[in-house]
Amino acid sequence: MVERAFMVRAGNDNELVEDFESRSLVAISWAELGDVSEIRSYDEMKSQFNAIDAYSKHNDRHIAQSAGQVHRFAVEMEEGHLVLSYDKTEREYLIGQVTGDYEWEPGDHPPGYPHVRRVDWKDSISRDVFTTATKNTLGSTLTVFSLDDRLDEIRAVLAGNIPDGSEDDEESVPFVDEVANQADELISDILANMDPFVFEELVAAVLRAMGYHAKKTRDRQDRGIDVIAHPDALGFEEPYIKVQVKRQQSTVGSPDMRAFTGTLGNGERGLFVSTGGYTKDARDAARTAEQRVTLIDRDAFIDLLIQHYDELEAEYQATVPLKRVYIPSQDPPLKE
């Protein structure tokens, strides 16, 4: 048997931790799936989710993520593997060892959590004992996830050896930066899969949120210009801004840039938005253009979107649904 470790959360809000400990088990919900003891592969698990009305209405990412968690619990987890569960009231991790096969127990307690694994709990370990890197891993919001890359540290802690986290803490990325980077990548995923015409509308909406009067042009009249914007409602004030929008993976080259700058007349400014970025020649062409041109790549657009999100019209917030959360602006100070 290959040594492995898994985290299983004690319900949605820590409500099952006493049951887990007193009944020597871990359990997960997804009750509508039924008994999955005959399922042996991840693809079979996904098919089971897609066959259930309660789950098939979810998007592909949600189904894939849920199927992965149940597969880890019912198939990958084996007798002898380590399992952790968090008691957030005490800020302690229960650490135990799986003692048997997957069980389907729909009539057993806790109700609504019929997928069960029996566990021999070995110890309770304070969260503060672990290194920053391990605490970040343990902080995942998934119900079931692998801790294989932290197995050595977990075994050491279980044996009473407190890890020296000084080197780990010095090299680890601050949590706030890690979360921000992950959020940017997830937003980028949404933009990458957005219809190009919807993305053009979103660019116009962000400009309106910034205080400009902006609208998407009519396709047959745009001559390569996707959005027009200006400071006042009637369009009398300068600058008159022409915007070209490219939602693509490839970089914009100098021919496209020169074609764009050629549409700019006196008193007009250019704004080029490209999620794929720009070649050096394209940037040079924009810099030497007769009229001023501003370039916005994917990261810069995401920054603008986040900065002006609260002022964005509701229909466009719905295209990139974001939620404001508060996290520590820095990791806890190192212990001496």
Rank of each mutant, 00 (worst) to 15 (best):
E200N: 04
V293M: 08
T89F: 06
P106C: 13
A259G: 14
G11R: 05
D256L: 07
R220T: 12
S41T: 14
A289E: 02
A259V: 15
Y278T: 02
F6S: 12
P333I: 15
D303Y: 02
D164G: 15
F73W: 04
T251A: 11
M210T: 11
W121N: 15
L264E: 03
I125Q: 06
S254V: 14
S329K: 05
P163H: 01
V8I: 12
H115T: 03
L207E: 04
E171M: 10
V325P: 14
V203R: 03
D128N: 12
D195C: 08
Q291K: 02
R208E: 09
A5Y: 03
L33H: 06
T261L: 01
D232I: 14
T294L: 07
R4V: 04
I39V: 13
Q69V: 04
K335P: 11
S41D: 04
A205H: 11
A282I: 00
A64E: 03
G107Q: 09
F236S: 09
Y86A: 06
S47P: 10
F175C: 04
R258G: 15
E105F: 05
A54F: 11
T137Y: 03
A54I: 12
G265Q: 03
A233G: 10
P328L: 03
I187E: 08
S329P: 10
I162C: 10
G224Q: 03
T131Q: 05
G276F: 02
V116S: 15
E200V: 11
Y316C: 09
V179I: 13
G80H: 06
M45N: 08
E238V: 09
K323F: 07
R208W: 04
E201C: 08
V198Y: 08
Q249Y: 13
A64G: 07
I125E: 04
E76C: 09
R117K: 07
I28Y: 03
R269A: 12
I28A: 03
D284I: 13
D53L: 14
A282Q: 00
T261I: 01
T319C: 02
P231Q: 12
L25R: 08
E76Q: 15
Q307G: 09
S146T: 11
T294P: 04
L202D: 03
P332A: 06
E171H: 10
D53I: 13
S140I: 02
T134H: 07
V252Q: 02
L82V: 15
E315P: 05
N50F: 00
Q291W: 00
V252S: 05
P255E: 02
